[in-house]
Design a protein around this nucleic acid. Structure first.
Lengths: 352, 352
DNA sequence: CACAGAATGTAGAACGTTCTCCATATAACG
DNA sequence: CGTTATATGGAGAACGTTCTACATTCTGTG
């Protein structure tokens, strides 16, 4: 390392591609070629350059990269970071990305659609190479328009007709059917679904899909007429209130399918408080198989859609699109039942 | 809007600062000045430019901005996204940032220190304006070195001697004392702490601080000699095993203070399975006051360190440093007790 | 009315990459 | 040996901002 180089390091000046080029005695273009392992690089050149990079501890500037070409970053957009389902998705994404030279940057949008759009735009403005949107609330046309600027994969967004972007989903209709079938198998006929309040529900959302599956399974069992769905508001004060009202209803059903573990677990807690025994008085099944559901204290049966797998698949799909695919892909996964104590007193089911 | 402009929009060409300048009939520099609301802009000019921006829907490229000046992005580094404490911190950060022109990008590092460093470097390479590190596992010197390249605030990292970066913490020593005092007030004398396995524990970590507080409070109560701490491994198979062993010990203490709700809740679950009654046989108090602890089913007393507030304070601190402060700040917050059923049978304490 | 000083606007050089040509050296072939 | 193809390396123009230095136009003041 030359004296000049050492001074540079001490001065804390940035080591740029130019520093590396000078140090290796080659051109800037040559270094760039090696970095991107582009065509037309001899072994000798490659060695010189990689040595120089190593020695100087050079890291390319992502900002500059983004300005010209790929930034090797993919953006992940989350709504509502509180849902225990999301960490799994992230883990899946990171798992696939780890061995590659890509990295994930996560943006968290709270409830407002406004923020959601501006966060996506920011990611585009950063010249990220692709986006994974998890449970976006945006209308399909808007996503399609954004997709003309950047490759997009939507997770938890049912729009199998989309041509501009890909979707990766668990089969939420089927998941709901499985839940109902499990309740039926335990002998319950009087089954109700606890779903999410109106506000959130465009047809493409997972919640609406689960409602469809619920209705279909009930119909199939000849219970179509009694298949009722209650909507639970998402915000704290009204939410518990509505659940309490549900629990104290005289015509309370024998079994309930909750659209999400989040609601199911709160329901279990309120039931305990109010002296409603689970599963003797009320059987409960949730959705997501979150880690809390698995706790012995909670012991909630749930539908498992592996978030980790969803994240992995979404990432792989995104990468193929970044690397050139133009036709849309719409991938489904089949969820599975995890039976636990909230379903039935003593059964052959696994779980404590 | 000129015909040329419309064509550009249709072709989906990026609207750049140059487009805006041409459309407003001013120079590029003028537009830039307006954007940054720099000195030397007349009302007339500002109006022309903002109109043009509005009309063309111009958004500055973050990539290009990062290359030259500020990127108006702050990076948040999380380890272990599964901890229910973290979403609160994020919410706090986003809350403070929302009205500003800054945005947060989150990076999630799993257990490996290697990834942690490379993620931070990436954020530097993106020319982010500042970093919030949550519970970093890096040694102080490394953080200090990174801090020479970018403003850094560490949350959950006790290093009040650091001069190169700021820290924001709940007073974990005091929190542990409060926990012990609560147990003492209930009449328990035989108290043990369940802490985290060796691996994680540099002196600066919150865990070690809680241990110190635990010892001090016990000492103060004249129980210094019997103040023992058990370490629970972090990984799944050994973790439960160690807890079970603890629960079936013949000299099991009367009360236990867990370093985190995460462990406390698992402990409650195992206790139920094994027929150890809480709080009759064993009183439990946790740390973090996570949303799960508040569930009626769980009903775990816990120490509350408002993650949201921590996130807010960290963000405000970071911004002042970005805007020029050079002296280090080390901020403490006092945690508080949230009493619940895991503490004592029937008391005046709030909670179900 | 002359002139200093403030206010306003602009040119143009960075910033650190990528990537499209080109130029040259070497190999292959008749 | 001449000609063409191929392999290798380099020059230099983008990319979309920021920001310094400068030119011009307005004030106000003596």
């Amino acid at each position: 390392m030359s004296i000049e180089d050492k001074q540079r390091l001490q001065r804390n000046d940035r080591v740029t591609i130019r520093t590396v080029a000078k140090h290796a005695g080659v051109s800037v273009a040559a270094v760039s070629k090696v970095m991107r392992n582009a065509y037309g690089v001899s072994e000798g050149l490659r060695a010189k350059v990689t040595d120089a990079i190593e020695e100087l501890g050079y890291r390319p500037s992502r900002a500059a990269r983004g300005l010209r070409g790929r930034s090797f970053t993919i953006g992940v957009l989350l709504i509502d970071i509180r849902n225990p389902f999301l960490p799994e998705v992230i883990a899946g994404v990171n798992g696939v990305l780890a061995p590659s030279h890509y990295q994930a940057m996560i943006g968290v949008s709270d409830a407002r659609v406004q923020l959601e759009t501006s966060l996506i735009e920011s990611m585009i403005d950063y010249k990220m190479d692709g986006l994974i949107l998890v449970a976006p609330r945006l209308p399909s046309e808007i996503i399609a328009k954004l997709a003309s600027e950047i490759p997009i994969v939507a997770v938890g967004y049912h729009d199998a007709g989309a041509t501009a972007f890909d979707t990766v989903n668990a089969d939420d209709q089927r998941g709901a059917e499985i839940a109902v079938e499990a309740l039926l198998a335990c002998g319950y006929r009087d089954i109700e679904m606890l779903s999410l309040g109106e506000r959130e529900g465009h047809q493409v959302s997972v919640v609406r899909q689960r409602e469809i599956g619920f209705r279909r399974a009930m119909q199939r069992a000849g219970l179509g007429s009694s298949a009722s769905i209650s909507k639970i508001p998402i915000a704290p004060p009204k939410r518990e209130e509505t659940m309490r009202k549900f629990l104290s209803r005289k015509n309370r059903p024998r079994a309930v399918f909750c659209w999400s573990d989040l609601d199911a677990i709160t329901l279990l807690s309120l039931a305990m408080e109010m002296g409603v025994r689970v599963p003797e008085d009320l059987a409960v099944i949730g959705y997501d198989n979150s880690s809390t559901a698995a706790l012995g204290l909670v012991n909630l049966a749930s539908i498992d859609q592996s978030g980790r797998e969803l994240g992995q698949v979404a990432t792989r799909t995104l990468i193929t699109r970044i690397e050139g695919r133009t036709s849309a892909e719409h991938i489904f996964q089949i969820p599975s039942l995890v039976s636990r104590g909230s379903l039935i007193r003593s059964s052959n089911a696994k779980g404590a």
